[in-house]
Design a protein around this nucleic acid. Sequence first.
DNA 1: GTAACTGCAAAATATTTGCATCCTT
DNA 2: AAGGATGCAAATATTTTGCAGTTAC
Lengths: 126, 126
Amino acid sequence: MGVIRKTQSVSLVLNEFEKNSKAISAIELVKRLDDKINKTTVYRLLDKLEDDGLLHYFLDSNGVKWFAKCKICSKSKHHDVHPHFQCTDCGIVDCLEIKITIPEIPNRKVVNSQILVLGQCDLCLQ
Amino acid sequence: MGVIRKTQSVSLVLNEFEKNSKAISAIELVKRLDDKINKTTVYRLLDKLEDDGLLHYFLDSNGVKWFAKCKICSKSKHHDVHPHFQCTDCGIVDCLEIKITIPEIPNRKVVNSQILVLGQCDLCLQ
DNA sequence: GTAACTGCAAAATATTTGCATCCTT
DNA sequence: AAGGATGCAAATATTTTGCAGTTAC
């Protein structure tokens, strides 16, 4: 593994994440870029960008992998994860900048947690 | 959809969940019963048992679907979910009977949440 | 120049579906 | 008898790998 080069593919992928602040699933991204980048490349780039701390990923309630642009993460503290939200009506997924505390659990050492909050987003509530 | 019949397959599947209280992934169960039940049947049974409230499922940090015998759930309040724990050393997964509170989030209606706690289990801590 | 990137085809993985047959009630 | 349940093969869906050719630095 080495440095990420500024290729057209990288720009195209990052550009999708900059359009708005929502998360994008791998499949969705593959589809969006289908005519521009080969799907193999898309998958490889997502992995690489995640490795590099430019994106982070998490799983939704269906086991689908979503990627989002890291605002909070950096390469070093990449696993300092935050909760995510998925709207049960429209399906959009985004990051929550709130802290949810996991209590101590007897006989276990809690290292990390993954929290997906489900509900209705602001647009769907109207 | 109809009533679950007490077939040998149903017994074999439920039996696996009664051996201990840990969760089992779909794939793992398919492998364990490979010589006894066809994989299609295993998948279909897991779905059906989940529908019926005898099992519940959740996803681990890799998007793998795990099933566990419902102690807490019933058919009616099947989605009154609890957190789950996965050991990062040995991989076992089980249910946590603790309550983690999700705070109110502005402009959204929180309906549900899925929480996976990662860490080391009692056996791996020794 | 060289390590990184890319596309294409093929493989791997996991799960689902169609259909004919068999089993429970 | 009739609605379930099962097995097998084939289809899906998603992601990964191998490899040869191209590009960025």
